[in-house]
């Protein structure tokens, strides 16, 4: 009966949410048409250039800093992981800032900005035009939209699109498309026609750390994950029991407390139970990139996982 009480309490939900929730259901065909439009226009009208003179410096370092803090931007430059690829339609430009893939997850950071006076002074946001990762040979990458976010920087017309993708299929070509958000039937898609190829081939190393009981934790510059143990993401009010072991002997505590001298702040984490032929999986995403050559293992509680 408790679940029913919760269902009853939902009667008090704000009516505007109820109305918004119906929009995709009411107009499913609109969404499909807009995707077709994106593909067809992409073939004819897209200009793609590479900003050759930008070298390994980020075009919009503030975009990257919004998602990956600390020395992450500099690390991307040092490791030659800056993309600086530019894709445009008549009114907007999207810069692919960086793409990190460790074969399991990927971080993709894009910046969208208006090119001329006709473009809206307010950049389109995720309510109107959402970025979707699709397989080039058809179909949306499962779960990709769940990990995307759009945000505006204060005092700037540019907006960032951030993808955090999990359970990749690195061998299968993908691309980011921008489609109208479901239900925006009478709106124009300002980013229509912009299609960004995404190569998910791993471009960063992963450290495999193993315990004596054969538990394995994988650590890459931007995340750690395991299919053998549940990595409990420490809550802001709780105490973390996850430490990344450094070669210099000073462990890095994975904790939401950003004031820690030797701490690494997560940007999020998740755990999925085994289902439908899939193993259980847990993951913690980092807010700051780490250089995994500085690390020799992971400690969770009293269990040590040594890098192989």
């Amino acid at each position: 009966m408790n679940g029913e009480k919760l269902l009853r309490a939902m009667n008090g939900i704000d009516e505007q949410y109820l109305a918004q929730a119906l929009e995709p259901a009411a107009k499913p065909k609109t969404r499909r048409r807009s995707i077709v439009a994106v593909v067809s226009i992409a073939a004819a009208a897209i200009l793609m250039t590479t900003a050759v003179d930008a070298g390994y410096q980020l075009t919009h370092p503030e975009s990257v800093a919004h998602w990956l803090t600390g020395g992450s931007g500099q690390m991307l430059a040092d490791k030659e992981l800056v993309l600086n690829e530019v894709y445009e339609n008549a009114h907007y430009r999207v810069t692919a800032e960086t793409l990190l893939s460790d074969g399991f997850m990927a971080d993709l950071i894009l910046t969208a900005e208006p090119l001329d006076a006709e473009a809206s002074p307010e950049m389109p946001d995720i309510h109107q035009s959402r970025a979707v990762l699709c397989y080039t040979d058809g179909g949306e990458v499962e779960g990709s939209a769940c990990g995307s976010g759009t945000t505006a920087l204060q005092g700037s017309t540019a907006k960032q699109v951030y993808f955090l993708l999990d359970r990749l299929e690195p061998g299968r070509p993908t691309e980011v498309r921008f489609e109208l958000y479901s239900g925006a039937e009478n709106e124009e898609n300002p980013l229509e026609g912009i299609v960004i190829p995404v190569d998910l081939t791993p471009n960063v190393e992963t450290l495999a750390c193993r315990s004596e009981e054969d538990g394995v934790i994988y650590v890459s510059p931007f995340e750690m994950h395991s299919d053998t143990i549940q990595l409990n993401v420490p809550l802001p009010s709780g105490h973390s029991d996850i430490r990344l072991l450094r070669n210099n002997g000073i462990p890095l505590l994975v904790d939401y407390d950003s004031t820690l001298l030797h701490g690494l702040e997560p940007s999020g984490g998740w755990y999925t139970q085994a289902s439908e032929g899939r193993e259980s999986m847990s993951c913690i995403e980092f807010r700051e990139l780490i250089d995994i050559s500085d690390f020799c293992g992971v400690q969770v509680g009293d269990t040590v996982y040594q890098a192989q």
Binding site: I13, Y17, L18, A21, A145, Y181, S182
Partner: peptide
């Protein structure tokens, strides 16, 4: 919005 819609 997308997640809210699915939940509701």
């Amino acid at each position: 919005p997308e997640k809210r819609s699915i939940f509701l």
